[in-house]
Design a protein around this nucleic acid. Sequence first.
DNA 1: GGAAAAATATGAGATATCTCCTATTTTTGA
DNA 2: TCAAAAATAGGAGATATCTCATATTTTTCC
Lengths: 223, 223
Amino acid sequence: MEKYQGEKKRLYMKENSIAHLFSFPAEKYVEVHEYQRDDWIIQEGMRPAFLFYVIEGKAKIYITHQNGKVSLINFINENEYIGEMELLHDVYYTKGIQALTKTVCIAFPIHYYRTQLLEDTKFLIELTKFLSVKATLMAAKYSQSLAFPLENRLADFILQTADNGVYKEKHVVVCDYLGVSYRHLLHVLTQFCDKGYLQKEGRSYRIKQCHFLHELAEMLKNK
Amino acid sequence: MEKYQGEKKRLYMKENSIAHLFSFPAEKYVEVHEYQRDDWIIQEGMRPAFLFYVIEGKAKIYITHQNGKVSLINFINENEYIGEMELLHDVYYTKGIQALTKTVCIAFPIHYYRTQLLEDTKFLIELTKFLSVKATLMAAKYSQSLAFPLENRLADFILQTADNGVYKEKHVVVCDYLGVSYRHLLHVLTQFCDKGYLQKEGRSYRIKQCHFLHELAEMLKNK
DNA sequence: GGAAAAATATGAGATATCTCCTATTTTTGA
DNA sequence: TCAAAAATAGGAGATATCTCATATTTTTCC
């Protein structure tokens, strides 16, 4: 992790203003942190000292269960908060946050800002919207995971992450995310190939029959 | 549904003050609604006209999937909001809310209150906390449902809902909640009886070996 | 550059969970 | 009060998913 200092920090903050997030000037004590891919922004079980706002990059939220299974609970994208749970609650089991790409965040020392943030309407309303989306999304994922087999959820995931008709996510990440074993994921991917929905090209997959995948994915949606 | 009027309404509002929830007087346009068990407070897919605050009772959040499966996403208890998603978002797929017991809510016409509510720090901070708990809970349920078999999740549920050492939830509700088939739920309950954890008494179950259940349930928790 | 670690790949058998079926009991509502 | 609907109960076979084992390829890092 690199902490931007001096001129570099000033420049970065100038080009990525956070003024619109608050109704008070919040620049004074903030830091700018840059994490590399696979760096842990927050370690599981360790209470963070900062509230982070992601300016660029992408990260993953992980939790480790007692039986050894690891769940990738969700992805975090630009313009989202990290560590807001710890800001709001004194007691909270902190989940692990790992950078998926190079990630730059504005880091607000909770110690300094907590009181002020929790009195700021502008901040609160944004946070409320963010959390409501998060809650809705988790509820959707939860109920879908129980109501549909991997086939449907994977089809949705492939369509969401495919780039230019090519799917090439890492299997290991995907099974943590979709909550299935590595073996089973490969099994269903092979099925998709056998049925002609996908075609394997080296270690990525080209989408051949988009509309069948769409049909499977559509099942998840409520209209 | 009964809408309290005149003296009944005034009395009820007096005995169940909501003044602590807002920094402005919010009584003028509110209504008091009483729902009976199994009444739909909000119908799935129908945008509600009110934000509700539950004063007494208990309700269930349901979503129906395209494949016909129904998920009981969560329970709603006293001092919780209903319809907050629609307050915050213009576009939102509304889930069904059904009263589990007699339920009395304060109903705020969104039309009148929306702007004022979204500017009120006191309200926002409570709502933010409520949503953060909801998001955390859903994330926990999601990852647990993928990482553990019914055995563990059911043990936890039994311990949480048992009254005086006796478990007697309705099977039909429980399978929607835990996302398993009726058949499988019965199967695992029978296993618990065979192993001596539970003992069937008519249509309820007496807990005999609490500590085995605890062990199963503990697996879910992160410490 | 090469050894160790991580990721990919696949087979085979086990098990958690589902679907479909049928029967009985309880609850509901006209 | 009685018929219909809902809930309980359990059998049997299907399937979605898991575990374990093993081999190859790719990536990491000293």
